[in-house]
Computed example of a mutant assay.
Amino acid sequence: MTWLSIGGAPAWADTAPTPLAWRDFFVLPIGPHGLEPTPQLRAAHGQPVRLVGFMVQREQPQAGQFLLTPRPVAMSEHADGEADDLPATTVTVLLPPGQRDRIVAHQAGPVAVVGRLQYGPAEDATGRVSWLRLELEPGALAAQASSPAPHAASVH
């Protein structure tokens, strides 16, 4: 098993990032009104967190971000359109503003990311709405960790 770690302790954090588990996102079982955020997720909003998951293998990677899920997932945007199999806990990992033109190559196996968690609806340039985002701090990815779009390089 190969591990990839993206970002260390954020410069904007006074303390170490809080580890957040996927089971801490939504109340289970799901109630009659749908998904309800847990107190842990609400408390983590706007705070530095550490999350371990799997990068979504995308047919069409998007510059400046990648998707992280609790289990390995492959997306075929061309074939499936918006009918993807992404879990509700999918987190959009946003690269720092100075690296938004970069594409991070897919990495198999678990990925640990550290960043500031945002919870609530937000629409990206493609029209996709995300409810969970993790904003990486500047310098979270080394220069060799990503490459200018449309080429992708491995993250080590």
Rank of each mutant, 00 (worst) to 15 (best):
L4K: 15
L134W: 01
A63P: 06
Q107Y: 01
R128S: 15
S146M: 03
Q144E: 14
P37N: 14
A105K: 06
A112P: 00
A153T: 10
Q40I: 12
M55S: 02
S147L: 08
P121K: 13
A63W: 00
V91I: 15
D84I: 05
Y119R: 06
G7C: 11
G109D: 06
G7Q: 13
T126G: 11
F26C: 13
A140I: 00
A153K: 03
T38G: 13
L20V: 08
F54Y: 14
V93G: 02
S130L: 01
P138Y: 13
V49Q: 06
A145C: 07
R71Y: 09
I103P: 00
E59W: 07
L132F: 05
A79D: 12
S146A: 11
S5Y: 10
H45K: 11
L95R: 00
A142E: 10
R42M: 14
E59F: 05
T38D: 14
P110H: 10
I103V: 09
E82F: 09
M1K: 15
L68N: 01
G115Y: 01
V73C: 04
A153D: 08
Q144C: 07
R133S: 14
D124P: 02
V114E: 06
L117M: 09
S146Q: 03
I6H: 05
P61A: 11
H33I: 13
F25E: 05
E123P: 00
I6P: 04
D84E: 08
A152W: 02
M1I: 09
F54L: 07
Q60C: 09
S146L: 01
P72M: 06
T15S: 12
W12C: 15
I6V: 12
L51A: 09
D24L: 10
A152I: 01
G8M: 08
L86R: 14
Q144S: 13
A13D: 13
P48E: 10
P32N: 12
M1D: 11
R50L: 12
V93Y: 00
P48Y: 05
E135K: 04
P29F: 12
P96D: 09
F66A: 02
L35I: 10
I6T: 09
A105W: 00
L132Y: 02
T126L: 14
A63H: 05
V114Q: 03
H78W: 06
